[in-house]
Nucleic acid binder design. Structure first.
Lengths: 340, 340
DNA sequence: AGAGTTGCTGCAATCGAGTGCAGCATCCGC
DNA sequence: GCGGATGCTGCACTCGATTGCAGCAACTCT
């Protein structure tokens, strides 16, 4: 037996399909007699009627789907965000279409084209590059979207970002309170917005707290990866600079530092303390467990979805952006500096 | 300007919409004059025409989407599988709709209902429970689906499963070759199919290799989690049984063992060796790095998608199932037993 | 030359739901 | 008792693409 259609319901209730349509739609229900509406609804219930979203979408040009554009689902950063998004989308009757871009602009364009041809009503974009002509263009074309994890430059688009600056301040303050004064920073790629904003916030925090603001204590990596992080720390170590603590651009970079500690027999946190950023899963299983800054990923996703739904409902509403607070998670990789 | 429709293309090419439709569809292109077809295609290209999948779906009752049902996207096990799935779906013009069930049967039913009302053409299901009346029912109702990670009992549905038995054998053999003879097994929940199959394979491997097959060396956990794994090992330790190696039901359980090692000051691998299962990300960052069995997650996803597409294309085709080989990843958590 | 093919194209219906407009009955006020 | 408002329902068309069938021209065969 095929799924019952609106017509089946209408027939069974003894009314015209148009009436059934109105009775079933809360927004137009007022147009039909209350008794009739009740009858139609009961019949629909009995028949197990489910409106066909494809047919509905054809007429209303609403697909009930939004596109979720992320660089790589395999990166543990994103699944919680996705869950947060879906947690909000789902009760609203929307579904998310997830695509991976692998941070490749060509692929990204292709994927977004694909999403648009699937008639998504909006886009949640979580890519990292600073330069983003595609976003400007989409925005010009009237595509409703929300950015996650990065503030768009020169594009008037709502965004949800963790308050990186505050998080960095938290990390540096923690180190300062333990007594560290010479803190190094292994920063992420300066081609990413988080990379630059964290590095900037690091310098600011160091100055604010009256620590040694030495440019030689900052190095940048080629990518957000363990190997790049390890390279960064090696450079710092080989430069001969003195420091007793490291603030890593993110957890993967911190993990790279662990590799270097191991390969050079450096005691952590005895000799050098490390703070990461992101609070990836399983960090507490490391030796030592990594102290880091936790980001409310799920909440970020949820906020993003809410903003997007708002924007879909009223595209003319001005772009609103939210900054989410972060928190410090103290574990075993930080300790007071050795007294020389 | 709104997106160009088929009619726009037809008009611009000076033909009827029906002809344009046929010209654009490779399957029906033979019905139209080759020159006309070329012209239509060129015009479509120039106008940037993208067929509207909603409209198409309405007529063909094909949505071009498949449902991907997983317990929890946050579990690092699943993202690679999802990537593998999408890697196959995408070139075929399909999209995946991902839903999380949280292993809650009610939620699962709700989610699957939701997917079906979205007209998915098939389902890739990656849940873990052995008992699964819902699956039987869906299968009876003619829903095309493929199971991942578990073999359905009494349901004639294609499935992709890692060859658990072979993987377990690999792990136990590795331990045996190092010289261990009394190997314990902290098994996963016996309410899950992988839990029972791994436990069964463990006993078989132990017997085959001529090791001590002592039921007291096997304990089962309440869930696939670190804390449950820790509880399991504590029980084993407190029972007073002697053993020099542990085969953990999965990596999380192994991680729980690490916690117990730490809390009781047990040296690993000096005093006790451990082998995990799954090869989660970042296991190489642990101290000691965990020896484990790697599962070709991405390949599993890809195979599942291929099987599903086959089944969609020809629903009458008999259920085919594939068993994927696993591999041993030797890291630092295994060593020869101490000589007493 | 007339009948029958073949090859291509257009007409019109269809999928399932949504919606402007017209029609009809009822009821109100004067 | 009549004009007009009000409330509800049905008709018919629309969204964009697909497809069975009919139509028509050119060509083949006898």
């Amino acid at each position: 037996m095929p799924a019952p259609t609106l017509r089946d319901v209408a027939e069974a209730a003894g009314v015209h399909a148009a009436t059934a349509s109105r009775a079933l739609n809360p927004a137009t229900r007022g147009l039909v007699n209350a008794d009739t509406a009740r009858r139609v609804m009961k019949v629909a219930e009995q028949l197990g009627y489910r409106p066909n979203p494809i047919a509905r979408g054809l007429k209303t040009s609403k697909s009930g789907t939004v596109g979720i554009v992320i660089p790589d689902l395999t990166n543990p950063l994103f699944p919680p965000i996705v869950r947060g998004i879906e947690g909000v989308l789902e009760p609203a009757g929307y579904s998310g279409l997830i695509v991976n871009t692998d941070n490749d602009p060509g692929r990204e364009k292709w994927q977004i084209d694909h999403l648009r041809s699937r008639q998504v009503e909006g886009l949640i974009v979580a890519t990292a590059r600073v330069e983003h002509p595609l976003m400007r263009q989409l925005h010009r074309e009237g595509v409703v979207m929300v950015m996650v994890n990065r503030r768009p430059e020169g594009v008037d688009v709502p965004s949800i970002t963790p308050d990186d600056a505050a998080g960095v301040e938290l990390a540096v303050r923690h180190l300062a309170e333990l007594g560290h004064t010479r803190i190094a920073h292994v920063a992420g790629p300066q081609s990413t917005s988080t990379g630059v904003s964290r590095a900037r916030a690091f310098r600011a925090a160091v100055r604010d707290l009256g620590l040694d603001d030495d440019p030689a204590l900052v190095t940048t990596t080629a990518s957000w990866s363990e190997s790049a992080g390890a390279d960064g720390l090696r450079r710092l170590l080989d430069s001969g600079e003195e420091f007793t603590a490291i603030f890593a651009g993110n957890d993967l970079i911190a993990l790279g530092c662990y590799d270097v500690f191991f390969e050079r027999g450096i005691d952590c946190p005895g000799r050098i303390s490390v703070v990461g950023f992101n609070d990836m899963p399983f960090l507490d299983k490391l030796r030592p467990p990594l102290t880091t800054i936790a980001i409310p990923h799920q909440q970020i996703g949820a906020e993003a979805a809410r903003l997007l739904l708002d924007a879909i409902a009223d595209p003319s509403r001005p772009a609103r952006s939210v900054l989410l607070p972060l928190s410090l998670v103290v574990r075993g990789s930080t300790a007071p500096p050795v007294v020389l």
